[in-house]
Write a protein that binds this DNA or RNA. Structure first.
Lengths: 150, 150
DNA sequence: TATCGATGGGCAAGCAGCTTGACTGTCCCC
DNA sequence: GGGGACAGTCAAGCTGCTTGCCCATCGATA
């Protein structure tokens, strides 16, 4: 096993560990701000819904789910008051899922929590190196679906 | 929303996307090499079991599972021939779970698959920058449990 | 050495969250 | 206007993890 091989194996653990850490930090921050009834998967959904809403099919593709699963997830978010289904302006088959005020508030809370979680990382590496890190990761990242973790 | 906040939000997606990509690459490589009956969670278990084996409790902590879940996962791996339960040399309550030959072969296959998946990343960034990236990630990573993704 | 709380692990039942399969209503191209 | 393609839902099923309970063994104490 050469260095590159060992590094590849370690990299898997590193990426999983850090993404898990960040997701956990966001989750904890959201709970602390009064949004205790959401899971990380809901956050990934919010990320897709945030700008202008999305259809069930678009959401499903973004999450890497089937449309049924996405629909069930939206059911749950509707029940909890984070999103609502509106008729799609151009397609009577489709429905546009959009954030409610509570959904937007939760999204902002998650953003602040992410910032807090990342703050010690910036302190550890220093701003320049941290920005370079993010830039490098962005060069490598595919534009595929986000796979919800836990 | 300032730059740092935007970067924190993007970082979540980047880390999740890249770790998902890497896990998927390893999974695909393992399948291609004849290990089609394992999930990523099994790989995380192998990572803990590889050196000298581990107890159910140690494995559970590493995976972030309950002991029952870890025990069920080991049941499955025993059934499929990847690990075996041996009596613990020092504690008659505990059992030592160790890899079989097939388990070791699968671990090596996963390592090669990880290397293959990472190769284009090294090509994209260049070796020096890639090594710096891994080093920076290692500085940030906690030593907590790995949270199996899908 | 006998006792007793703490610990490792298994058994059984339950449940959350996702999938597969079948169906309705709407779109759009010929 | 007819017919295939597509958006979404309903119902049922299953996988994988959890909770609750149990027994066997350990090790500290007296």
């Amino acid at each position: 096993m050469n260095d590159t091989s060992a590094e590849a194996g370690a990299l898997t653990a590193l990426l999983l560990s850090l993404s898990g850490e960040l997701v956990a930090g966001i989750q904890a921050g959201a709970v602390a701000r009064g949004f205790g009834d959401i899971r990380p998967a809901h956050g990934y959904a919010f990320a897709r819904l945030a700008p202008d809403g999305a259809t069930i099919g678009e959401l499903a593709e973004h999450l890497g789910f089937t449309k049924q699963a996405a629909s069930q997830l939206v059911d749950e978010l509707v029940r909890k008051g984070y999103v609502e289904r509106r008729p799609h302006p151009r397609d009577a088959r489709a429905r546009l899922v959009v954030l409610t005020d509570r959904g937007w508030a939760c999204t902002r809370a998650a953003d602040r929590a992410a910032e807090e979680t990342v703050a010690p990382w910036i302190a550890e590496l220093g701003p320049e190196r941290f920005h370079a890190l993010v830039a490098d990761l962005a060069r490598l990242a595919p534009r595929g679906p986000i796979r919800p973790s836990w």
